[in-house]
Every structure is written in structure tokens, then in C-alpha cells.
């Protein structure tokens, strides 16, 4: 810790009262951060290889179609593995449970988000806000659909041609949608350095937690 932004300096630097809670609070365990990092790496590889297979300019630049196909297939197949390994962690399972449950405060949050309203009490959120919950559930379902349709395209003898054509159709359009949603996810992270620090180091500043996730009590986590 080098400096505390916003502090007035060293004047009258007395020992803080002992009841003061620590300034930084734990948000993600090492296991959770590892799951996120591994998933992100696989997802980026999967998206990058997809672009090289699909966008004519990139395909022309990169070539090596056989290699790119292999990388795409395996990064896609391995994408759910960090999640499955993460289930061994209690902290990860606990956060999954939180992401699953929607309370009345989430409806309030969504309503405010849709009407672009900010202000005190407008965006109530626990450890995860309603947008994060929806994103997590949607991307989980989308990855599973991509996996299923991808396997149909990969192992061509698994299903009749009509299914394969249907799988290609869904795979292509959902890939486009995932690209857009993923860009939104990354843009949200880029816009909030403290949220990024939380995922990188595991802890966040207490005022940030209180502001962004007022219903979350990190001390009881």
C-alpha cells in the first residue's frame, strides 16, 4: 500500500481507534480468481480462433486452418473445466448460490438499470448485482449451447445433416451474440478499476463495496 488517495496528509497522525474495520475487504478467494483467469484465457483463445476462422481478412492473414481449427475445438471443449474444478471450493459454491438467487432488491436494481436511474437506494445489490447475476447465468447457458452445437459440427456422424445445419446456424449466430455480450462484460470491467482490482488481488476498498454492493456484508463473508 503506497498512499491513501484523498487523505489530508500526515497532520495529527494519531493511531486510529481500534474499532476501525480494515480498509480493504476480501471479495474473491484465490480459487475463484484462478477459475476466472483460466476461463478468461480459454474464452479469449476460443474467440480469437473463431475470428480467424470466420472473418475473411483475419483468415487470410493467419491461414493455418488445420491448426486454428484444432485450437478452437480444444479451447471450447475445455472451457467448462475450470468451472467444474472450482466446484471443489466452498467460496466458489457459495458465490454460485448467490448468483442463482434473485430477491426483491434485484428487481429494483433491474428496473433502475433499464430506466438508467442512479442515486441512493436505486441500485440495491448484494455481493453481486442483478446485472452480474443475469450475465453469469446467460453466459453459462450460452457456453453449454456452443459446446453442444460445436460437438455436433465436430463429430459429423453424431447426427443427421438437418441437425448439423441447425447446429451450424445456432453456433454462428450465438457466437456473434456472445461476442457482443462479452465486449460489454469487458467494457464494464474497464470502466471500474476497483472491480478489476477485486478480481485481480481478491480485495476491494470498503467504501467501494458499500457504494456498489450496499447489501453485501464483507465482514460476514
Amino acid at each position: 500500500m503506497t498512499s491513501t488517495p484523498g487523505s489530508a496528509g500526515r497532520t495529527a497522525a494519531t493511531t486510529p481507534p481500534p474499532s476501525e474495520p480494515p480498509h480493504r475487504v476480501r471479495r474473491f478467494s484465490p480459487a475463484e480468481r484462478l477459475v476466472h483467469r483460466a476461463t478468461a484465457a480459454l474464452m479469449l483463445l476460443c474467440v480469437a480462433t473463431a475470428a480467424c476462422l470466420y472473418v475473411p481478412g483475419l483468415a487470410e492473414l493467419v491461414g493455418r486452418r488445420g491448426l486454428v481449427v484444432t485450437l478452437h475445438e480444444w479451447s471450447g471443449l475445455l472451457l467448462p473445466v475450470p468451472f467444474l474444478l472450482g466446484l471443489a471450493s466452498r467460496a466458489f459454491r457459495r458465490d454460485l448460490r448467490r448468483l442463482n438467487r434473485f430477491g426483491p432488491h434485484d428487481r429494483t436494481w433491474l428496473r433502475s438499470a433499464l430506466r438508467r436511474r442512479h442515486g441512493p437506494g436505486r441500485r440495491p445489490a448484494g455481493k453481486f448485482n442483478a446485472g452480474q447475476k443475469l450475465y453469469a447465468a446467460w453466459i453459462a447457458g450460452a457456453v453449454l449451447v456452443m459446446l453442444g452445437t460445436g460437438l455436433l459440427m465436430w463429430f459429423t456422424h453424431l447426427a443427421p445433416l438437418v441437425w448439423r445445419n441447425g447446429a451450424t446456424f445456432v453456433h454462428d449466430w450465438l457466437a456473434l451474440t456472445i461476442g457482443v455480450v462479452l465486449a460489454g462484460h469487458i467494457a464494464k470491467a474497464l470502466a471500474d478499476p476497483e472491480a478489476r482490482r477485486g478480481m485481480r488481488t481478491g480485495s476491494v476498498e470498503r467504501p467501494w463495496a458499500r457504494r456498489e454492493h450496499p447489501l453485501w456484508d464483507p465482514d460476514r463473508d
Binding site: R97, R101, F102, G103, P104, D106, F128, K133, A136, A137
Partner: peptide, 8 residues
């Protein structure tokens, strides 16, 4: 978030 509808 420990209770509520399992929307996820």
C-alpha cells in the same frame, strides 16, 4: 442473496 427465486 441467500434466498429468493432461482432465476439464475
Amino acid at each position: 442473496d441467500s434466498e429468493g427465486t432461482p432465476v439464475g
